[in-house]
Computed example of a mutant assay.
Amino acid sequence: MIVVTGAGGFVGLALLDHLLGEGHPVTAFNDRPLPRPALDRFAALPGALTVIEGDVRDAAALRAALRGARAVVHGAAITLGPKGTIAPAETVVDVNSLSTANLIEAALAEGVGRIVYPSSSAVYGAAPFEGEPVVEDRPPTPAGLYGFTKLMSERLLLDARRRHGLSTVRARITAVFGPYERDTGVRETLSPPYQVAMKALAGEPVRLAAGGARDWTSSRDVARALALLALADEPPHDLYNLSLGETWHPSRLAEAFAADLPGFRYEVVDGEEDDGIAFNDDLGRQRQPISSARFAADFGFRFMPPAEAVADYARWVLGDGRTYLGSLNGA
């Protein structure tokens, strides 16, 4: 059995979808009910799903959830952006880092075989703007509270690995977009591709700033990668970047919607973001991708390139996503 914390986030839901589709028994640990359209889909998949509502700051609840687990993917987090307005610092630290200490203690007590930790490229700070792809050996230099909490959790996992022999893997995730993304209230800025998708479904025109290209990576690929790290024999490394390895602009997604939605219009304009499409990055600087060459070499893994990832997301949005997004956006 595999436990997924933060299972109601869009990466968590994508991971549940993948694991259940492969027939694995999964326990979803989340602080609120999972979305009904997602549960309806999961019920048709071959794997068995157990849902536990609980708070990752509750050490006893975590230990109970981990009983009998083979591995745990600890995805619970508050994704604070530059504004830092969605939660007080104390709450962010407790959810993002104290929970990791609780999880390690619970995993050791219950004999869990592995912890996979979805960390973030935020630990690299401004490195992606310095002209070269970012590799795992790059010293971490987080610039904000979110990055510091992710690095703190990484350090706790390293300590558990060295002192207790616990199998831990840190996976630094870059800019994720794709199926199951919605506004859950724990991410300060939703991805620009998601924002474009919502405007397209609403029949609203989109104006995008010319900057803002990032290594937007499909939630499906991130889910497959996290599942692989949870289920594999001991990985050759305990730290991996997860990224498709190249940057692309959200206008590529707008172009895909324009081809399938008569009347949908978009344009790319010079200057800052426009028309309500929010970005976290400095749009005046070119961002380099983080490199996933290590992960590809160790596991033979292939991320969807931009054209494939965009087409896959557009199909989902205009298919199953219509019901999912229509019923749950803002819920």
Rank of each mutant, 00 (worst) to 15 (best):
M1W: 03
I2P: 04
G6D: 09
F10W: 14
G12C: 10
G21I: 11
G23Q: 03
A28T: 07
P33I: 12
L34T: 15
F42W: 14
A44R: 15
P46G: 06
V56A: 09
A64Y: 01
R67H: 05
P82F: 09
I86C: 07
I86E: 07
L98C: 00
I104Q: 00
E105P: 00
G111H: 14
R114V: 10
V116W: 08
S121W: 05
E132P: 01
P133Q: 05
D137F: 00
G147N: 04
M152D: 03
D159T: 08
R161T: 15
G165W: 04
V169N: 05
V169T: 15
A171E: 12
E188H: 03
Q195G: 11
K199M: 05
A200L: 13
E204C: 10
G212E: 10
A213K: 02
R220Q: 12
D221H: 11
L226K: 10
A230N: 03
L231A: 08
D233G: 14
E234P: 15
T247L: 08
T247Y: 07
W248Q: 01
W248D: 03
P250R: 00
P250W: 08
A259Y: 01
R285E: 14
F299P: 06
P305E: 13
V310S: 02
D312W: 02
Y313Q: 14
W316R: 00
D320V: 05
Y324P: 02
G326V: 07
S327T: 06
